[in-house]
């Protein structure tokens, strides 16, 4: 049902018309694709999305946090690129997530990639491998568990608290 709605909205956006013939064609095609792709996705499992009024609120909050982070990321990158001294101190750190679903982890990983100075490199179970362009916050001497905690708080926590509202 979610897939059908998504496909139908996509059709609407692409045609950009409200004529009956267009709407009908869109409905038929969306239904057809939904039926044909049934085999390709595992329909047995529970949906990754949570539908409640509060989850909608979480989604909106997440989008706001994300938009701000995206703009900040660009200004930050612009500053680094333009500074003659190239102020970077990169390293690969690990980040922990409590999100269980594949979709949840995907959204988190993508959010991390698009935000200031961080790039998701790999995902293993509940650990994300993140390339961090400025690890000055880690102060060099923190290793192992302490570094994991700090990196998780700095990089992922801001998104995760909102994502948990509408994703498993």
């Amino acid at each position: 049902m979610i897939r059908f709605t998504t496909l139908w909205v996509l059709w609407m956006l692409l045609t950009g018309s409200l004529q009956w013939s267009e709407l009908l064609t869109g409905t038929v095609i969306a239904a057809l694709i939904t039926g044909l792709s049934q085999r390709l996705v595992d329909s047995g499992s529970q949906s990754d999305l949570i539908f409640t009024p509060r989850s909608l609120l979480s989604l909106l909050r997440y989008l706001r946090v994300f938009a701000l982070a995206l703009i900040q990321a660009n200004l930050d990158m612009a500053r680094r690129v333009l500074s003659p001294s190239l102020p970077i101190d990169p390293a690969v750190v690990e980040v922990e997530t409590t999100l269980q679903s594949t979709l949840g982890k995907l959204v988190l990983a993508n959010s991390i990639t698009l935000t200031p100075g961080t790039l998701t490199v790999d995902l293993q179970q509940n650990r994300l491998l993140v390339h961090w362009i400025d690890t000055a916050v880690l102060a060099g001497d923190q290793q192992g568990e302490a570094a994991l905690q700090l990196a998780t708080r700095e990089i992922a926590a801001g998104f995760e608290q909102h994502l948990k509202g509408f994703l498993r």
Binding site: N74, L114, L119
Partner: peptide
């Protein structure tokens, strides 16, 4: 300007998205 492939990806990804 970036020194290695990872930093270059970072610069590319972010600027290209908002741009």
């Amino acid at each position: 300007r970036m020194p290695d492939v990872y930093n270059r990806i970072q610069a590319g990804t972010k600027a290209v998205t908002l741009g």
